[in-house]
Computed example of a mutant assay.
Amino acid sequence: MRFAPVAAALSLFLATTASVTSAGEREAEPRAAMLIAEGSAALEAGDVQAAIDSFEAALAVDPGYTPIFLDLAEAARRDGLQGKAIRYYREALARDPGNFAAISGEGEALVEKGAIEKAQRNLSRLESLCGESCPETVALKATIAAGPPARLAADTAEGGPASN
Results as ranks from 00 to 15, higher is better:
L152W: 09
S133G: 06
D155P: 08
A102M: 10
C134R: 10
A145K: 15
Q120C: 00
L129F: 08
Y65C: 05
S124W: 01
F100R: 15
S54L: 00
G114P: 09
L110M: 08
E127I: 11
A101N: 08
A109P: 07
A101K: 12
R95A: 14
Y89P: 02
T137N: 04
L110P: 02
A94E: 14
T143V: 14
Q120N: 03
D96Q: 15
G107R: 10
Q82G: 01
F69K: 03
Q82Y: 13
L81Y: 11
G105A: 07
E158A: 15
I86T: 07
G105S: 04
A92R: 05
Q120A: 04
V111H: 01
A57F: 01
G64C: 00
E108T: 14
V138Q: 10
S133F: 11
R125A: 08
A75Y: 12
G83V: 04
Y89M: 01
K118H: 01
V138S: 05
A150W: 06
L72Q: 11
A139I: 09
K118G: 00
D62H: 12
D96F: 05
D96I: 15
G105P: 10
S124P: 00
Q120L: 06
G160N: 11
A145D: 14
D96A: 13
L110H: 06
G114E: 10
D79M: 03
K84W: 08
P97Y: 04
S128Y: 05
A115M: 05
T66N: 05
A58W: 02
V138E: 12
A94G: 12
L129H: 04
G160R: 08
Q82D: 11
A154P: 03
A102Y: 12
I68L: 14
K118L: 02
L72M: 10
R87Y: 08
S54R: 03
R78A: 07
K84C: 00
P148R: 10
A92P: 04
A146E: 11
A75V: 14
L93F: 06
G98Y: 08
E108A: 14
